[in-house]
Design a protein around this nucleic acid. Structure first.
Length: 838
RNA sequence: GGGCGAGUAGCUCAGUUGGUUAGAGCGCCUGCCUUACACGCAGGAAGUCGGGGGUUCGAGUCCCUCCUCGCCCACCA
């Protein structure tokens, strides 16, 4: 209404047409480009780089990215200079597998750089798909700030990080036993483990004592008998005291096994005699270390028995187990057998039970800095606060330093060579990064210094988290890659947004890196989102996504599909429905509700434009104090909402804001205020001369404020209405770069709120009576007689015009009434008009 | 076994520091195509707030205890 050149509002809201056009408008205006020269405070966001190659994006992902974005849009309107990058993760095993499968190649017939080239091509394709969806969803990302975890900039950053930590003495290389995945044939870190409950058999098996007596141990893993290097009993266990210093003979394999004591043996478990092998579990590793036991590794890196397994050599562990049990039984050495529930550590990716192997690995020290990490955790502002506990408990429970070596082909290489005979470490020069030691030469100084010696490259690659943990540094160009936008002075970044399941990995590792590299926190605030779940409250699986396309091609879990059918605003409306940190079930009907909200808002815009066609806010505004009570009431109520929504964004609890807005918009603004003031427009002659201009002033002001409040949630429809009604008048390119409305006490009007309570009670009573009387909508009403308590009458009489406007009748009187109003002590009667309203 | 979170209408969830008769959306029932909107409007039914105990003038809200569900961690002889 404030825009004299505002185009006519089309009858219906075509979301696809509008959203496409608005997205282009933002794009043309370069609205989301980060401006390094802006005088405004920077607000920077670190969001998860999704796996591009997997292509399994579902509504749950859309939900978490949308949630981050609500906050971003709010901050932009609060006057921050927004730095909002987007990354893609194409590092790690899933990508390796994907490329091998798709291109029918493997690491034996291509070089790393060739493999990387293919991966980057795939990334570019995948990133396009993602970018299309993210843009469609309205994410206000600066796409110039894109990174991929395998691109040269990220590789350089990861390698620089390695050099930095090495220089600081925080890295070491050792061939201690490491967690090993026999399926993927690589070492893993503690954070890569999962647990599996399964049924297992606990067998009592007889070893032979020196005097020929039976020494019974209990084990679930008889295939490790050839790796047995000790039997342990508790020092106070009298039953075995006589065995002190003696040896036992292992069944079948016959090796002599020392009998030793340890406080950690539970005399109550089994026979109280414990078999220790290299290595059945973490406990075995501990005993091996403490008691300096022999090393008899019987399992190979791919999970088979080696020559120590004698005739069972070459068998996979489970087959060997079965065969060995068979032989033990034949020899009568199995003395007991019972089924037990067992919990085993498995590799998160492959699902294989974890073994231990001795392979030289690079470790980052974390165990001796737990207290420091806990202190860093306490420096962060957590939303919701209880998520901090998850990180703290993980830190407290750490048992291993961070193993960053992976025996895989694809990933970020270590910037390291070794002198073959001495094992001396040669590090790359920082100016040469990124390097691949399997293809690049070592630095010139090293070639000179070790001339004549054989120099071998490190062939392992780094743990994928070694790179991802640097997302703040990658974003802000800590490695100083020429041409990248971003500046390390932005560190710590403002906000990290992520889901809870990667607190122990992504969040923890990022904290470690920041602490070690810059002696600082990575970001000031952490926002932990929940998951978007399916209708049954379960995680949306890849197969759910794949099996959910209907005959028309609509996939009910595919964000793009949903956006096409209901619009991005509708999907975002659903995403705004969960309290931060809580999971949110996906229901199509909630997206439909979002769609209804969008359409309702559109219709309000249309109505306001119609009623305000001849209104010029530069000269027609009626001062608030001079407007009728219903106008002052509306503005007062609106001010409460402004405060509420602002608070909800400040506490990252956008869902509370959405609720408050929706209730206000729908029931206060539409169902009451708009319905009340219509009468003023229909019968201006019945009201004072300013009443139309008052309503127009209020409509204009309140709609403008509401559009701003709703803009972070529903950026498209709010922009569309803004462009039609306010943009030209305000001279702004977009509602998203206008100023956030703040609460304004001059709008508060307790007096109007009190008088409107009476009016609304009368209105409710009238609606109740009307509904009971089943009056047709077009029934003309001559007069309404209110039969209300004496004490209410002066208040109502004082706002007579408002009352008539609300009840939509020219004559309101007090007197006797017979119709029930649903309110104690309130009745009314009504004089019907002769003719129906036309 | 330790920890975190949750249990409120048929379903999904709000309910700030304890304060009248516990709310919303969806669903259900009754009317209404009323000059923005039938993707709408008006009205209605529906809850012993997981169980038990306690503090208080007053408890969905605070304390104790038990039960159920989800997640994280530990448990591998």
């Amino acid at each position: 209404m404030t825009n004299p050149s505002a185009a006519e509002f089309p009858e219906t809201y075509e979301h696809t047409e509008v959203e496409t056009r608005i997205a282009a408008l933002w794009e043309d205006a370069r609205l989301y480009d980060y401006d390094p020269h802006s005088p405004n405070p920077v607000y920077s966001i670190d969001t998860p780089p999704p796996y591009v190659s997997a292509a399994h994006l579902h509504v749950g992902h859309a939900m978490s990215y949308a949630q981050a974005e609500f906050v971003v849009r709010y901050r932009r309107m609060r006057g921050h200079s927004i730095f909002y990058p987007m990354g893609f993760d194409d590092n790690g095993l899933p990508t390796e597998r994907f490329v091998e499968r798709t291109y029918k190649i493997n690491k034996h017939n291509v070089t790393r750089s060739e493999f990387r080239r293919i991966c980057l091509e795939e990334t570019a394709k995948g990133a396009k798909v993602y970018e299309r969806i993210w843009r469609a969803l309205g994410l206000s990302v600066d796409w110039r700030l894109r990174y991929s975890t395998i691109d040269p900039h990220s590789r350089k950053t990861a390698q620089k990080s390695f050099l930095d930590l090495h220089r600081k003495g925080l890295l070491y290389r050792t061939d201690e036993p490491v967690l090993w995945d026999t399926a993927d044939e690589t070492a893993l870190a503690q954070a890569d483990l999962d647990t599996l409950e399964r049924k297992s058999k606990l067998l009592d098996i007889a070893f032979a004592g020196e005097d020929g007596s039976d020494l019974i141990i209990s084990t679930t893993r008889p295939e490790l008998i050839p790796a047995c290097v000790g039997l342990f009993f508790h020092p106070k266990d009298e039953r075995y005291a006589h065995l002190r210093g003696k040896h036992a003979k292992a069944p079948i394999f016959g090796q002599p096994v020392p009998i030793l004591e340890s406080e950690e043996v539970d005399p109550e478990f089994g026979t109280g005699l414990m078999m220790v092998c290299t290595f059945g579990d973490a406990e075995d590793v501990r005993k091996w270390r403490e008691h300096k036991l022999e090393t008899r590794l019987v399992l190979t890196r791919n999970g088979r028995l080696n020559e120590l397994g004698g005739k069972y050599a070459g068998l996979q562990a489970p087959q060997a187990r079965a065969a060995i049990i068979e032989e033990l039984k034949t020899q009568g050495l199995v003395r007991g057998e019972r089924a037990i529930e067992q919990v085993v550590s498995i590799a998160e990716r492959s699902g294989q039970p974890i073994e231990f192997q001795m392979v030289p690995q690079w470790f980052i020290r974390v165990l001796d800095a737990k207290e420091k990490f806990l202190a860093r955790s306490a420096q962060l502002e957590w939303h919701p606060p209880h998520m901090k506990t998850r990180l703290d408990q993980w830190i407290e429970g750490l048992r291993y330093d961070w193993n960053i070596s992976r025996q895989r082909f694809y990933g970020v290489p270590f910037p390291v060579w070794y002198v073959e005979d001495t094992g001396e470490v040669i590090l790359a020069d920082e100016k040469d990064l990124p390097v691949d030691p399997t293809e690049d030469d070592p630095p010139a100084w090293a070639r000179e210094k070790f001339a004549g010696k054989t120099i071998v490259p490190e062939s392992d690659v780094m743990d994928t988290w070694m790179t991802s943990s640097l997302s703040p540094e990658i974003n802000t160009n800590w490695a100083e890659t020429p041409g990248r936008i971003g500046d390390p002075s932005m560190l710590p970044m403002s906000l990290r947004v992520q889901a809870f399941e990667i607190i122990r990995t992504w969040l923890f590792y990022t904290l470690v890196k920041s602490h070690y590299q810059r002696n600082d926190i990575p970001w000031k605030t952490v926002m932990i989102s929940g998951w978007g779940l399916n209708e049954q409250g379960k995680k949306i699986a890849k197969r759910d996504l794949e099996a959910s396309t209907d005959a028309s091609g609509f996939n009910r879990y595919d964000p793009y599909s949903i956006i096409q059918r209901y619009g991005a605003d509708a999907l975002r409306y659903w995403a705004a429905g969960s309290r931060l940190g809580n999971d949110l079930r996906y229901n199509e009907k909630d997206v439909k509700s979002g769609r209804k909200f969008v359409v309702k808002l559109w219709n309000v815009g249309k109505l306001c434009a119609t009623y305000g066609a001849d209104f010029d806010p530069t000269k027609d505004i009626v001062p608030l104090a001079e407007r009728p009570p219903e106008d002052r009431w509306l503005m007062s109520r609106l001010d409460h909402v402004v405060e509420h929504v602002t608070e909800s964004f400040e506490s990252y609890d956008y869902a509370l804001g959405r609720d408050a807005l929706e209730k206000f918009f729908w029931s206060v603004y539409c169902d009451n205020y708009l319905e009340i003031i219509k009468h003023r427009f229909w019968h201006p002659e019945a009201y004072d001369s300013q009443s139309t201009a008052s309503a127009q002033s209020t409509l204009s002001e309140s709609l403008r404020v509401m559009l701003s409040l709703i803009a972070p949630y529903l950026p498209f429809v709010t922009e569309e209405i803004y462009q039609r009604m306010f943009a030209a008048g305000e001279g702004a390119k977009s509602i998203h770069v206008t100023t956030w409305p703040l609460a304004d006490s001059s709008r508060r009007d307790p007096e109007a709120e009190v008088s409107m309570q009476l009016v609304l009670q009368a209105l409710e009573g009238w609606r109740f009576a009307r509904s009971n009387a089943k009056l047709p909508a077009r029934q003309a009403i001559e007069r309404i007689v209110l039969d209300v308590p004496e004490e209410a009458r002066p208040g109502l009489a004082a706002v007579d015009a408002t009352l008539r406007s609300a009840l939509r009748v020219q004559n309101v009187e007090f007197g006797e009434g017979e119709l029930d109003t649903g309110h104690e002590g309130w009745k009314l009667s009504v004089a019907l008009g002769a003719e129906p309203v036309t």
